[in-house]
């Protein structure tokens, strides 16, 4: 009995350690963001703000175009997510339900894209977007974001569509539904959960992307949030406005934290869809 209790206690200690490990860097950002600039640069370090201070939260919107960064990120990530989910669902339907010739081979070839680091696409896309004059244009991010997440979308949706009973489609065909109608009126509405799972994951990945955003968005006002924050730093190490940076970090990441907690089941489902079946 005592042994069992010790074991249980050890287990909870481990759980607490895991939780602390996961959230403490983020918590530290929150604490820092609530301090005044003087308190941030004073020793000894205070582990709780002496006086809660929201000034840096206001300053990033008034002194820097942080609101604009957020709008840019929202726009780019939403468009890319919609495009990605739409295109993936069409392709996944063709592969899973129509079983067209070479469908599985196509899937395999597309999956290869997921294996390469982004840097491989960078220079040619830079060249291409330069010629087309797409720098600072959201399209220069929307298309690549939709594409690099396409393998994931097609993979998850193909395995989901395969699970939908064939009888539903057959019944609809008897009623005179065309293939197109079956897809848009029956399969896609039935797949709402899988579409949502895919969309949430793709949105997070788009929101967080850095390399393309850094390279293709040159004007300050065209930047997305991660690049905007990275560029908040002053000219030298000593000018870094840590109060503003931490406030900006919290504003950008808090929605993600909330999304993660609300949709954790879906995110886990999506992340692991490949792991179990593959």
């Amino acid at each position: 009995m005592v042994k069992k209790k010790i074991k249980l206690f050890g287990f909870f200690v481990l759980i607490v350690i895991v939780v602390l490990f996961s959230i403490s860097p983020f918590l530290w950002q929150i604490i820092t963001s609530l301090k005044s600039n003087e308190e941030i640069f004073s020793l000894p370090i205070s582990y709780f703000p002496h006086k809660i201070n929201f000034r840096s939260y206001i300053e990033i919107f008034t002194e820097r175009p942080f609101g604009r960064y957020i709008l840019n990120s929202l726009f780019v990530a939403s468009c890319a997510t919609l495009l990605c989910v739409f295109v993936s669902s069409l392709a996944a339907y063709a592969i899973a339900r129509i079983k067209i010739k070479g469908g599985n081979k196509f899937l395999l070839v597309v999956l290869v894209v997921a294996f390469f680091p982004q840097i491989i696409y960078l220079i040619p896309l830079y060249e291409l977007f330069r010629v087309l004059g797409l720098f600072n244009n959201p399209i220069a991010l929307i298309l690549p974001y939709a594409t690099i997440n396409l393998p994931f979308g097609i993979w998850v949706l193909t395995s989901f569509f395969k699970q939908i009973p064939k009888e539903i489609e057959d019944a609809a065909k008897v009623d005179g539904f065309s293939r197109g109608k079956v897809l848009f009126r029956i399969i896609l509405p039935l797949s709402a959960p899988a579409l949502a799972t895919t969309a949430i994951l793709v949105f997070i990945l788009c929101w967080n992307e850095f390399l393309f955003a850094l390279t293709f968005m040159i004007k300050d006002l065209a930047r997305t949030v991660p690049v905007g924050i990275a560029m908040l730093s002053g000219a030298s190490m000593y000018e870094i406005p840590w109060d503003k940076i931490s406030a900006a970090t919290v504003i950008t990441t808090l929605p993600l934290v909330i999304i993660t907690i609300l949709f954790q089941r879906r995110i886990v489902e999506g992340l692991t869809a490949g792991a179990v079946k593959g």
Partner: peptide, 8 residues
């Protein structure tokens, strides 16, 4: 879920 660049 947090952006690598931001948390960096």
């Amino acid at each position: 879920a947090l952006p690598t660049a931001v948390m960096a």
